[in-house]
Design a binder for these strands. Structure first.
Lengths: 89, 89
DNA sequence: TCTTATACCGGTATTTGTATCACGGTCGGG
DNA sequence: CCCGACCGTGATACAAATACCGGTATAAGA
């Protein structure tokens, strides 16, 4: 095994990340935001649903720009729970 | 073809991006920064040399945190000199 | 000189991201 | 009621990111 298969908390972080994007999207449609960001709607959907937990930096940058979000805030919002470790399930 | 094979300007952007990271690293060693960011030194080297033009968002976020960089500034620094008109209408 | 540390480079393996294709659900008009 | 349009979704295909291995080159120190 050469590539780390994405730890569970990384996937959880991806879900939270997607939830943030979906929330920021508000009432706008997926296709609209995806088009504005220059990515396919399917890709946006995967990111929002957490099925793409670690998207590329520039993809997120484009989405953040289309959604008027701050990359630092986005990262901080997802990095915070990592600091406190995953809550006891 | 299902995946766009990375356009030339994307690779150029990756090179500029890597140069930024390398500059921010200063005199610190690759292994030190890579360890601080939680990525392998090879990955950091590939990103710095532009051989990994579109790294994952969280990888960059971790590196930016380790280097005390702002993600927004980082994205802006790479988007400004080239300005992709493909995104944003 | 020899050893150590750092950085670079090639290849390899595995996982993942992204895009295209095709389907079902919902809504409004005819 | 039927149909087309829009949206979200699942499956599939390919390119790329990440990690590990070995080897190489340069500079500093013993």
């Amino acid at each position: 095994m050469v590539r780390t298969p994405l730890t569970p908390w990384e996937r959880e972080r991806g879900e939270r990340f997607g939830a943030l994007l979906r929330d920021a999207r508000g009432g706008r449609s997926m296709v609209e935001v995806a088009a504005a960001a220059g990515v396919s709607a399917e890709t946006l959907r995967k990111i929002e649903t957490g099925r793409a937990p670690t998207p590329s930096f520039f993809t997120i940058a484009a989405l953040a720009f289309a959604l008027d979000l701050s990359l630092d805030e986005l990262a901080a919002a997802c990095a915070l729970p990592d600091d406190g470790q995953a809550l006891s399930a």
